[in-house]
């Protein structure tokens, strides 16, 4: 067994972890924005599926994966706007609305995707090594021989971190999730901003879907996100609503996913079904650790998460 864990093997696993994690990362960052604004969206899985399908359909139509990614973003945003309308505009139950979105997205993508099943893509996001950086020892092969969407995720993480913690818009975003009535009193349009963040979150989830269907597993199969959307939801908690930690978590999950195939390939005899359970069990463990009594305050959960804001409702 020792010969399995060579440097080369580890580099390959880490590189694959980052590639596999990027889809979860996009979705997780999107959900993070929505939750920071105080809206829980359990529709990530559905939005990712629709995004994945839209990406495939647009790429098949245009031959250009970038247009595919754009279509995925629009499709995800469109799905999220249903949630924005129901959960923010009409103050409907956020849990049920999110679940409905996942059901709808799963059903609609399977229905519309029937004709795309198994079609090979004319083009997809392949690995494009970054000049110079790709030749760095260790870091080169791990970080800089990836597909362009992965590079986009590298840029997105610090950008969102800066946005959330260092800009005035980020300050307003945090206030929305923390104390919407305070934001309202300061002249911030709570519902409109919340709706926008839900839609942006959906756009990122859609892009996450495309990262799978145009990147790691090119082409369309029914239910191809395989629960990654749900992992993204769990990961937001794991990340403590912090974009930098979201990246760490997403790559960790990517690692479990990637390691599973590599270990099989290397002849390690663990049933793939048990390996497949690991990310889910791991999420539970993380969740339990993160919600240890007393840990909640340090976690930084937005205080108003999941609560619709209604100004004129009073006793």
């Amino acid at each position: 067994m020792e010969q399995v864990f060579t440097v080369g093997f580890l580099v390959a696993v880490l590189a694959a972890a980052i590639a596999a994690g990027s889809a979860i990362l996009f979705a997780c960052l999107g959900e993070l924005l929505a939750e920071r604004s105080g809206v829980l969206n359990l529709g990530v899985e559905g939005m990712m599926l629709i995004g994945a399908l839209a990406g495939v359909a647009a790429t098949l139509g245009t031959g250009n994966p970038w247009l595919g990614a754009g279509a995925a973003i629009l499709a995800g945003a469109g799905m999220a706007s249903i949630h924005a309308l129901l959960a923010v505009g009409l103050k409907a139950n956020q849990v049920v609305s999110g679940l409905a979105l996942t059901l709808f997205g799963g059903g609609l993508s399977a229905f519309l995707g029937q004709r795309y099943v198994g079609l090979p893509l004319p083009a997809s996001f392949g690995r494009e090594p970054v000049p110079l950086l790709a030749d760095l020892p260790l870091f080169g092969p791990i970080l800089f021989r990836q597909d362009p969407l992965v590079y986009l995720s590298y840029a997105l993480v610090p950008a969102l971190w800066f946005f959330v913690y260092k800009t005035r818009a980020g300050l307003r975003l945090r206030a929305l999730g923390e104390r919407p009535e305070a934001a309202d009193a300061m002249g911030i349009d709570v519902d409109r901003l919340r709706a926008s963040y839900v839609v942006v979150g959906g756009a990122l989830a859609g892009l996450g879907g495309a990262a799978i269907s145009l990147g790691t597993n090119p082409g369309w199969t029914e239910g191809m996100t395989a629960g990654r959307g749900w992992i993204a939801v769990a990961l937001v908690i794991f990340a403590g609503w912090n974009p930098a930690r979201a990246a760490l978590g997403a790559w960790l999950f990517g690692g479990v996913e990637a390691g599973q195939f590599r270990l099989q390939g290397a002849g390690v005899d663990i049933s793939p079904f048990f390996l497949g359970m690991l990310p889910y069990l791991f999420t539970i463990v993380v969740l339990v650790l993160a919600t240890r009594p007393g840990a909640r305050h340090r976690l930084g959960a937005p205080a108003a998460l999941g609560l619709p804001y209604q100004r004129e409702e009073r006793g």
């Binding site: 129901l86 609305s97 679940l99 409905a100 709808f104 799963g106 609609l108």
Partner: peptide, 23 residues
């Protein structure tokens, strides 16, 4: 020859409208 997934899709839509209508 249509996918059976039309059923969960309709379920999702019904739920959207019920949620909106409940309001």
């Amino acid at each position: 020859g249509l996918p059976a997934a039309i059923a969960p899709m309709l379920q999702g839509i019904v739920l959207f409208f019920l949620l909106g209508g409940e309001l």
